Lab assay of single mutants.
Amino acid sequence: KNAAQIVDEALNQGITLFVADNRLQYETSRDNIPEELLNEWKYYRQDLIDFLQQLD
């Protein structure tokens, strides 16, 4: 998997990933985040941060 796929997957589930103060953050109206997504975000944290910062 790559960062773009993970960001896309999150968006499809109503979750927006973004970077604030060099930390990976998310916004969602969901009550909870599936644990497998959280684990994936932790595992790919630096890739996601790098990818999202390139988009800014």
Rank of each mutant, 00 (worst) to 15 (best):
K1H: 04
K1P: 04
K1T: 04
N2C: 09
N2A: 10
N2H: 12
A3K: 01
A3G: 04
A3L: 07
A3V: 10
A4W: 11
A4H: 08
A4Y: 08
A4V: 06
A4D: 06
A4F: 08
A4T: 06
A4N: 06
Q5C: 05
Q5D: 08
Q5W: 06
Q5I: 07
Q5M: 10
I6W: 02
I6G: 00
I6Y: 02
I6M: 07
I6L: 11
V7R: 05
V7A: 03
V7D: 00
V7K: 03
V7I: 13
V7W: 07
V7L: 07
D8Q: 15
D8V: 13
D8P: 01
D8G: 11
D8K: 15
D8E: 15
E9F: 06
E9P: 00
E9C: 04
E9H: 07
E9A: 06
E9Q: 06
E9L: 04
E9K: 06
E9T: 06
A10H: 01
A10Y: 03
A10S: 04
A10G: 03
L11N: 09
L11H: 11
L11T: 09
L11P: 01
L11Y: 12
L11V: 08
N12S: 12
N12R: 15
N12L: 14
N12D: 12
Q13P: 01
Q13N: 10
Q13G: 06
Q13A: 14
Q13M: 15
G14C: 05
G14N: 06
G14V: 02
G14R: 04
I15Q: 00
I15W: 03
I15T: 02
I15G: 00
T16W: 12
L17F: 05
L17K: 00
F18A: 05
F18E: 03
F18G: 05
F18S: 09
F18I: 09
F18L: 09
F18T: 11
V19M: 06
V19S: 04
V19I: 10
A20G: 07
A20P: 02
A20L: 12
A20H: 12
A20V: 14
A20S: 13
D21S: 06
D21N: 11
D21M: 05
D21L: 05
N22P: 00
N22G: 15
N22M: 08
N22W: 05
R23D: 15
R23F: 10
R23W: 08
R23L: 14
L24P: 01
L24R: 00
L24M: 03
L24D: 01
L24W: 01
Q25D: 05
Q25W: 14
Q25R: 09
Y26G: 02
Y26D: 00
Y26A: 04
Y26C: 05
Y26H: 05
Y26M: 05
E27A: 14
E27I: 14
E27L: 12
E27H: 14
E27Q: 13
E27R: 15
E27V: 14
E27S: 15
T28G: 06
T28Y: 05
T28R: 03
T28S: 11
S29D: 14
S29F: 09
S29V: 10
S29M: 12
S29G: 09
R30M: 12
R30Y: 08
R30F: 07
R30I: 09
R30D: 07
D31K: 05
D31R: 02
D31E: 12
D31S: 06
N32T: 13
N32C: 09
I33P: 06
I33R: 01
I33G: 01
I33S: 02
I33M: 05
I33E: 01
P34H: 05
P34D: 07
P34W: 02
P34I: 03
E35R: 08
E35F: 09
E35D: 11
E35L: 11
E36T: 12
E36W: 10
E36L: 08
L37I: 07
L37P: 01
L37F: 07
L37C: 02
L37H: 02
L37D: 01
L37S: 04
L37T: 06
L38Q: 07
L38C: 06
L38W: 08
L38E: 06
L38S: 05
N39G: 06
N39P: 03
N39L: 14
E40I: 08
E40Q: 07
E40H: 05
E40C: 05
E40F: 04
E40N: 05
E40V: 08
E40S: 06
E40T: 08
W41F: 11
W41M: 07
K42V: 12
K42I: 15
K42Y: 14
K42E: 15
K42L: 14
K42P: 02
K42R: 13
Y43H: 11
Y43V: 13
Y43P: 03
Y43A: 14
Y44K: 04
Y44R: 06
Y44G: 02
R45Q: 15
R45G: 11
R45M: 15
R45E: 15
R45T: 14
R45L: 15
Q46P: 04
Q46M: 07
Q46E: 11
Q46T: 08
Q46A: 12
D47I: 14
D47R: 07
D47N: 08
D47T: 10
L48D: 00
L48K: 00
L48E: 00
L48A: 00
L48S: 00
L48M: 03
L48N: 00
I49T: 05
I49C: 06
I49Q: 03
I49E: 04
D50I: 10
D50G: 06
D50E: 13
F51Q: 02
F51P: 00
F51S: 01
F51K: 02
L52C: 01
L52A: 01
L52W: 02
L52Q: 00
L52P: 00
L52V: 02
L52D: 00
L52T: 01
Q53D: 07
Q53Y: 09
Q53E: 10
Q53A: 10
Q53T: 14
Q53F: 07
Q53G: 11
Q53V: 12
L55N: 13
L55G: 11
L55E: 11
L55T: 12
D56H: 13
D56Y: 08
D56F: 07
D56N: 13
